[in-house]
């Protein structure tokens, strides 16, 4: 006798993960190489500052908003911060997730308890809803938003929601909900190289480039 939930769970943990991982890694490498190999012309202007140092600095410093701007786009800023922090706390500090990294890379780090994980998850989901709301109502964001943006928001939210449901057995069969949770992550992984989720990788490059461009001039970045 077969259990659909158990079979789905095993498929999600087995072949589906392999497929998702292949597309995820392969796709990211394709897109990163497409950026890197393209290259850029050597800048002939005598540097005033240190482009490389400022490039690396900007990778981090750009995480802090410019003074005075938060009040003009509070949902985008706060929602953005809370979502990213919540998502990564839930993703990186939940013990079962760490176990995955331990298995894959042999590394481990301390995990956070349920209170922290679930608060982070809840906050991230609320932030996500706020971001969706702002995309639907705010004129600037509405004009910029494409199907891709909603897809990315929904795909980012599903692992949080399904994870919460699975851990807390809110509804549905336990195995089924874990399977759905894993599948939702795999959907996120598969979509990653094709959507704006790529920013999670390329932001490092774009911040670096911005920093080098400004850094050469001795200007702020």
């Amino acid at each position: 006798m077969n259990s659909p939930a158990f079979d789905l769970l095993m498929w999600a943990r087995g072949p589906a993960f392999d497929i998702a991982l292949t597309i995820f890694i392969g796709g990211i490498i394709i897109r990163v190489l497409e950026i890197v190999i393209l290259g850029r012309k050597k800048d002939m202007a005598a540097p005033k500052g240190n482009p490389v140092a400022q490039g690396f600095k900007t990778i981090f410093s750009r995480s802090i908003p410019r003074e005075g701007l938060v009040k003009f786009a509070p949902i985008t800023y706060l929602g953005g911060y809370i979502f990213h922090l919540g998502f990564f706390v839930a993703f990186l500090f939940f013990a079962p997730h760490i176990a995955l990294f331990t298995d894959a890379f042999g590394i481990k780090w301390p995990d956070a308890g349920r209170v922290i994980i679930e608060s982070a998850t809840a906050l991230a989901v609320i932030a996500l809803l706020a971001l969706i709301y702002s995309r639907m109502t705010d004129p600037v964001r509405k004009a910029l938003t494409t199907f891709d943006d909603y897809l990315v928001l929904i795909l980012s939210g599903l692992p949080l929601i399904t994870g919460y449901v699975a851990v807390n057995k809110l509804f549905g069969d336990g195995q089924m909900m874990i399977a759905i949770h894993i599948l939702s992550v795999e959907a996120l992984m598969i979509a990653f190289p094709f959507t704006k989720l790529m920013h999670a990788v390329t932001f490092v490059m774009s911040r670096y480039y911005n920093g080098t461009i400004q850094g050469r001039k001795g200007a702020e970045s």
């Binding site: 701007l69 790529m198 490059m205 774009s206």
Partner: peptide, 22 residues
Amino acid sequence: QIDSPVASFFSSCVSCGLCAEA
């Protein structure tokens, strides 16, 4: 005109619209 920085910029944009505020 399209080079690595341009490619990385377009790849990174999440259409957050903060550039409008600036």
